[in-house]
Simulated scan of single mutants.
Amino acid sequence: MAEAEEKNNSCGTICLKYLLFVFNLLFWLAGGAVMAVGIWTLVDKSDYISLLSSSTYMIAAFILIGAGAVVMFTGILGCCATIREQRALLLVFCVLLLIIFLLEITAGILAYVYYQECFPLCYQLNAELRADLKERMVENYQQPGQEHITRAIDRLQQDLKCCGSNSSADWRDGAWIQTPGADRRLVPDSCCKTPTDHCGLRDHPSNIYKVEGGCISKLEEFILQHLLILGSVGLGIAFIQIVGMIFTCCLYRSLKEEIY
């Protein structure tokens, strides 16, 4: 009995348990971070998303939330399996880690292949996105029943420091600019570097944001930067998963040897 207890408390097993517990804690936190990014995208950036006709970014946010929830659940399962030293739970945990890892790798490969094959089509879709955003900005801004679009455009131009879809000249065709309500403004006040009432009367570069490519280029840059960050985080999590699978297998084998 004493000998069995000594085996169960062997230094190797204890070290593996602590290492695996730390891994699970980090994995759980990573899942929480991924879920938080998805929720933040839906809540804080919902104005940006409302300007896009495509639902891709909304779907991507929901995928992030779902993936984060799965990772958090897996992390909790791993903690329970480690603390209770249940080999069956450890096996389930290891299998879940392997499945998540394979899904991450598959998604990355498919995304790269899809991007390479559809580059000409993507360029065409990008042109359509530009035209669509311009249409929303010039036709819906400050129009009755379009308050959410107006708020989204003002926030977009201030946050990303830009003016107009492709350039500030887009506003010359704006439905609101051509009405008495614009009060001789050339651009919305949200285009100004220092927004004040009627500051849009002057569209000189010293007064408004004149960015090459307009707000659509800044929005694309914003999205690409966040995709790069998410990609880097994904690679980091994938590396952590490999370490976790190694620790899990070692602990599983150690417990098996102690039973026999």
Rank of each mutant, 00 (worst) to 15 (best):
G234H: 08
I208N: 07
S53W: 04
I105K: 02
K134M: 07
G231W: 03
V211F: 12
I49H: 05
T248S: 15
A111W: 02
A2H: 02
E104C: 10
N126S: 14
V70H: 01
I59H: 04
Y114C: 06
A131K: 14
I216A: 07
L186N: 01
Y123S: 13
C192S: 08
E128H: 12
Y115V: 04
V43F: 03
D154Y: 11
D44N: 13
T106Q: 01
F239K: 01
L110G: 05
L186H: 01
L96N: 15
Y114A: 14
T82K: 11
S165E: 04
F93L: 09
Q116T: 14
F222V: 00
R172W: 02
N207G: 11
L156Y: 03
N166C: 02
G214R: 06
L97F: 04
V37H: 04
V92P: 02
G234E: 10
N126Y: 09
F93Q: 13
K256N: 12
D159E: 14
K17F: 02
Q116D: 13
Q178S: 10
G68F: 00
Y123E: 13
I63Y: 04
I63C: 07
G214W: 05
M1F: 04
G213Y: 08
I216T: 15
C215M: 10
W40Q: 02
C249S: 11
I39F: 12
V113R: 10
L25T: 05
D197N: 05
Q178C: 00
V187Q: 06
G75M: 09
L52P: 11
L103Q: 05
E5H: 03
L228C: 04
R172D: 13
A88S: 14
S50K: 13
D173E: 12
N9L: 06
S165N: 06
Y252M: 15
E139N: 13
L121P: 00
L110E: 04
A111N: 06
L97E: 05
G32Q: 05
R87G: 10
E139L: 07
L129F: 09
L228W: 08
F73K: 01
L255G: 03
H148G: 07
C11H: 00
G78C: 09
K7Q: 01
L64N: 04
Q225T: 03
Y141D: 09
L98N: 12
S165D: 11
D173P: 01
N166E: 08
L96I: 15
C15A: 14
C79K: 09
C249L: 10
A107H: 02
M72P: 08
R136D: 11
I242F: 11
F119Q: 14
E221T: 14
E104S: 11
G108C: 09
D170L: 06
G31F: 03
Y57R: 01
S46T: 12
M72Y: 08
S254M: 12
G200W: 06
L77V: 15
W28G: 05
H204E: 15
F62H: 12
K210F: 06
M137Y: 06
K134T: 10
R136F: 04
I229W: 11
I76R: 05
P188K: 09
